[in-house]
Design a protein around this nucleic acid. Structure first.
Ligand code: MN
Ligand code: MN
Ligand code: ZN
Ligand code: ZN
Lengths: 153, 153
DNA sequence: AATCTATTGCAAACGATTTGCATTTAAAAA
DNA sequence: TTTTTAAATGCAAATCGTTTGCAATAGATT
């Protein structure tokens, strides 16, 4: 029943206990707001904005600023990955232990539906680009945009 | 001596006259600020931020707000392409007539050096993704990041 | 030259994100 | 368990990029 590192896109929910122990290992305190945030993240398969997380939280559970701070912290310790859909709002997705969370999305430009994409930019092409210009540690940021079935005319 | 549509990455400078006539064709006025902005864009091979354009402008030539408005207008009429390097600041690059300007960049995460990239995400893979999820009019946003030769240790 | 309307400058508004600071509180120590 | 201590929180205010309202200005057209 072990799922370590296999299909990174199965979105198997990580247990809250595993998440908090990851935090503890990083010498971070497990607080009410943080547990609540992790609880929300672990039930969402797609990236969430700070405001969306805030909206999911039971009213008064915590301040929006606390969410901003928590997400930045979770990103630093590698528990969430920050995504940029180009609309000026940061989005965050929980990632598995050991995984760097690198992946992509297909976003409907009309209704904002999100599809998780497994395909990545071909490594050999990326390597060729890196070499061609003498760059090292090259990575990429890639998102797809289009019209989902429901939004086509 | 015609360069229509050939190498889209040769960055051959478009004449200011050609640019202004494009504007006139779109029923836009050729003003001092606009001519100055186009003059700057046409001498820069990489995307520029509003502020960078502003800084290049002879002091007092025009207001920063005017640049914001001009860039939005130029984008609307298809004369510039907006790029997003993920740092929350919009960048603009002049594009050739008839070209949609779609291309990518390799950006040094340390010194911000920019390299223009010709390679694009393989069309067949994009088509497969589009089809797999029933999306239409699929496009992508892709940028590469790494360490340039001068910034590696 | 007179007219018409787009464009501009300046100030103010905005939305996302960050920061300062006093107060609370989780976790370590006693 | 109580005490101690540093981290985390709430609230207000600041920052940053970008947009908007409005009166004044100036291209383009007659
Ligand atoms: Mn995802
Ligand atoms: Mn470019
Ligand atoms: Zn990838
Ligand atoms: Zn491409």
């Amino acid at each position: 029943m072990n799922s370590s590192g296999r299909n990174p896109h199965a979105h198997q929910r990580q247990e809250l206990g595993a998440l908090t122990s990851r935090l503890r290992r990083e010498a971070r305190k497990i607080t009410g707001p943080r547990a609540a945030i992790l609880e929300i993240l672990r039930h969402h398969p797609h990236p969430l904005t700070n405001k969306e997380i805030f909206a999911q939280l039971p009213a008064g559970e915590c301040d929006l600023v606390t969410i901003y701070r928590a997400m930045r912290m979770l990103e630093q310790v590698g528990m969430v990955k920050r995504f940029d859909f180009g609309d000026g709002v940061a989005r965050f997705e929980l990632i598995e232990e050991g995984d760097d969370g690198h992946h992509h999305h297909l976003i409907c430009t009309h209704c904002a539906e999100v599809v998780e994409i497994r395909e990545c930019f071909p490594v050999e092409i990326e390597a060729r680009i890196a070499q061609a210009y003498g760059f090292s540690a090259v990575t990429h940021r890639l998102e797809f945009f289009g019209l989902c079935p429901g939004c086509q005319k």
